[in-house]
Structures are given as structure tokens and as C-alpha cells.
Simulated scan of single mutants.
Amino acid sequence: MKLILVLAIVAVVAARPEDDLSRYDNFDIDEVINNKRLLKAYMDCFIETGKCTPEGNDFKKWIPQSMEDSCSKCSEKQKILVAKVILAIKEEYNDGWLKLNELYNPGGKYDTSLNAFIEKYGH
């Protein structure tokens, strides 16, 4: 009986949608970064001053990973999405970028890896 319970728990955990690396394969990041209102809403989510959509929550999880280790657990598509949204916030909303950077990169300790990540995936 315990084995069945353990297998059921493993099956549920393995099927969680947030672990599905293909979930964002068709996500149009250009729609977000080219719409200032939408980009600002995502930024507000990331800096915890606004509500988050399910997608915003996922991006919010990937941002610290992108700064710390170039989002090593992300798919290539997710890396591109995160890098592009970070770059767009950096270019369009300087105050928001400063808050976001301080929140996830305190003291600039990930500057080198973050800049390399954005350079590789953000363009």
C-alpha cells in the first residue's frame, strides 16, 4: 500500500505543468516586450508591486536562476524569453530595472553571469 501511495505522489509531481519545458515553446515574447503596458505589468509582478499571471509567476522563478547560473534548468526557449524580457525592462523602465536587479542581484554579485546571459540569449 505504501508503495502505491509513493508511486502516486511521484506521478503527480512528475506531471506538474511548471516542469513542462515545452510549455512556452509558442509563447510570443515580442507581444510582451513591444507592449509597454504589458511589459510594465510583468515588471510589476517581478518586483512584487503588482499581480502576477501564471506566466509571470513562471518568469519570476526563472529570473533568479538566470542571474545565478544562466538558467541551467531552463529550456533554450525559456532562456530566450527571460533574457528578452529582462533586456526590455532594462531598456524601457530604468527605475523598475534597478529594483529588479537589486531584488535578484543584490550588490551586483551576479553581474558578470547576468550580462553574459543577456548577451547570449537576449538579442
Results as ranks from 00 to 15, higher is better:
Pro17Asn: 04
Leu39Cys: 05
Lys120Met: 08
Thr53Asn: 10
Tyr121Arg: 13
Ala83Gln: 05
Asp19Cys: 08
His123Pro: 09
Lys84Pro: 09
Lys51Trp: 14
Glu68His: 12
Tyr24Trp: 08
Leu38Trp: 03
Val32Met: 07
Ile89His: 01
Val13Asp: 08
Ala11Glu: 06
Leu39Ala: 04
Leu103Ala: 05
Phe59Gln: 07
Gly107Lys: 12
Trp62Ala: 08
Ile33Gln: 05
Asp19Asn: 14
Cys74Pro: 03
Val13Trp: 10
Ser22Tyr: 04
Leu39His: 01
Ile86Gln: 13
Tyr93Pro: 00
Leu81Thr: 03
Lys120Asp: 07
Leu3Ala: 10
Ala41Phe: 05
Asp44Trp: 02
Ile9Ser: 13
Asn94Tyr: 03
Met43Arg: 07
Tyr42Gln: 10
Leu100Gln: 00
Gly56Arg: 11
Glu55Phe: 14
Lys84Ser: 04
Pro17Lys: 06
Cys52His: 12
Asp25Lys: 09
Met1Thr: 14
Asp58Arg: 15
Asn26His: 10
Glu102Tyr: 04
Ile80Gln: 14
Lys60Leu: 05
Gly56Pro: 09
Phe46Cys: 09
Ser66Ile: 14
Lys99Gln: 15
Ala41Lys: 14
Ser70Glu: 15
Lys61Arg: 13
Asp19Ser: 10
Ala15Glu: 06
Glu76Arg: 07
Lys79His: 08
Asn105Pro: 03
Leu3Thr: 11
Lys40Ile: 01
Asn94Ala: 07
Pro17His: 04
Arg37Asp: 14
Thr49Ala: 07
Leu5Gly: 06
Leu3Ile: 11
Pro106Trp: 00
Met67His: 04
Leu103Arg: 11
Leu81Cys: 03
Lys2Asn: 14
Ile9Phe: 15
Ile118Asp: 05
Cys71His: 02
Ala41Leu: 10
Glu102Val: 00
Leu5Phe: 14
Lys2Tyr: 11
Asp28Val: 12
Trp97Asn: 03
Ser70Tyr: 11
Val10Phe: 08
Asn115Ala: 03
Lys109Ile: 15
Ile29Met: 06
Asn105Asp: 06
Asn34Leu: 04
Phe59Val: 14
Ala15Asn: 12
Val85Tyr: 01
Phe117Arg: 01
Val32Gly: 03
Gly122His: 12
Glu76Gly: 02
Val10His: 00
Leu81Ser: 06
Ser22Cys: 05
Lys77Asn: 13
Leu81Tyr: 03
Cys52Ser: 06
Asp111Asn: 15
Ile33Cys: 01
Ser72Ala: 13
Ile63Thr: 10
Asn35Cys: 02
Glu18Trp: 06
Ala41Met: 12
Leu103Met: 10
Glu92Asn: 13
Lys79Trp: 07
Gly108Cys: 08
Trp97Gly: 04
Asp58Tyr: 15
Val10Ala: 13
Cys52Lys: 05
Lys61Glu: 09
Tyr24Ile: 01
Leu21Gln: 12
Arg37Ala: 11
Lys2Trp: 11
Asn35Pro: 01
Ile118Glu: 06
Asn57Asp: 13
Gly108Asp: 09
Ser70Trp: 10
Arg23Val: 01
Asn34Val: 00
Val32Trp: 07
Met67Thr: 03
Leu103Cys: 00
Val10Cys: 08
Ala83Tyr: 01
Asn101Arg: 15
Gly96Arg: 00
